[in-house]
Write a protein that binds this DNA or RNA. Structure first.
Length: 287
DNA sequence: AGACAAGCCTGTACGC
DNA sequence: TGCGTACAGGCTTGTC
């Protein structure tokens, strides 16, 4: 599933190959992909514009256009952005196609938004109206990489929060970009039990969460993100990442902890989210 | 056939 | 009263 490192990998692909290019044609094959506004709004909002930059906040991709509007793309669970030669055969569930005019350095190409489960979406909005058109963007918490999250900020975010630390890491209004995979990996590296109340963490533990968060997210970006067996996440060129090979708890239920050799436990918490932890490295004794 | 996985929103219930 | 929190349900569909 695309979380911060995967979205960042896609962003880098866009920055290298798509920024600066003009969109000369747009087709929307499935209305649900543009449900926030309309087919017309997305087609008209993109056609004839040039993409000025590729930015990211949490799991949201943001592409400012020379028209003054910005494109917001969220991949949710199964969304992909793929760059392909003009006229290439499109995979099933290709919902939006933006044709990119050729440049002196690149041929005519197409940017595809592919999304089998259609939870993802594409929105073209006026940044001056962001609070109305994309309120979740305005309500987004701190991005650990973009905003330079430090221990003091994390301490403030955890203060007085009675929620379990894992739920807090998943709360996009608090910290933006962490999903189920990285929440489990971060807590294992920090040696914190997922059920710990956030407000109960002491300074060394907050520092450990901070270090694990930065370290794991940066390591994963360097590895091109995590591509699981379902290959739901691939980068702009269709290539998988390799950070799944470095997972120490996620998807390893019943296997041995790579740190202490004890068996990894999988349970479900709030909303049926699967949670993996090592009962030795992440002792519950001080819950 | 039916359960399941995912991110995120909404609605409801409860406790501080 | 109101807020923070937990949890269920909904959205969707390929895979087990």
């Amino acid at each position: 599933m695309p979380e911060l490192p995967e979205v960042e990998t896609v962003r880098r692909g866009l920055a290298a190959r798509v920024v600066g290019r003009r969109i000369d044609h747009v087709a929307v094959g499935r209305e649900r992909a543009v449900r926030r506004t309309s087919v017309r709004a997305v087609v008209d909002g993109l056609t004839g514009t040039t993409i000025l930059a590729a930015c990211r906040r949490g799991k949201y991709l943001l592409l400012p256009l020379d028209s003054g509007d910005t494109v917001m793309i969220h991949l949710r669970m199964s969304g992909q952005l793929l760059l392909a030669p003009s006229g290439a055969a499109r995979p099933a569930h290709t919902h939006v196609v933006a044709s990119l005019a050729p440049t002196t350095r690149r041929p005519a190409e197409e940017l595809w938004f592919v999304d089998p489960r259609t939870f993802g979406e594409v929105v073209v909005f006026d940044p001056d109206r962001a609070a109305v058109e994309v309120p979740e963007l305005v309500a987004l918490g701190i991005d650990p990489l973009v905003d330079g999250l430090d221990v003091a900020m994390l301490t403030r975010l955890f203060a007085d929060r009675r929620t379990r630390i894992k739920s807090l890491l998943l709360d996009q209004h608090v910290i933006a970009g962490i999903g189920n995979i990285y929440a489990d990996e971060i807590l294992h590296r920090a040696r914190i039990h997922p059920d710990r109340e956030a407000r109960s963490l002491r300074r060394p533990q907050i520092a450990a969460v901070h270090a694990a968060m930065k370290g794991i997210l940066e390591d994963s970006v360097r590895a091109g993100g995590s591509t699981l067996g379902d290959r739901q996440y691939v980068d702009l060129m269709g290539a998988g990442g390799s950070y799944q090979d470095d997972h120490r708890v996620y998807g390893r239920a019943g296997q041995r902890c790579l740190t202490c050799a004890r068996g990894i436990v999988r349970r479900t918490i709030a909303g049926g989210r699967s949670t993996h932890h090592c009962p030795v490295c992440q002792r519950a004794a001080t819950l």
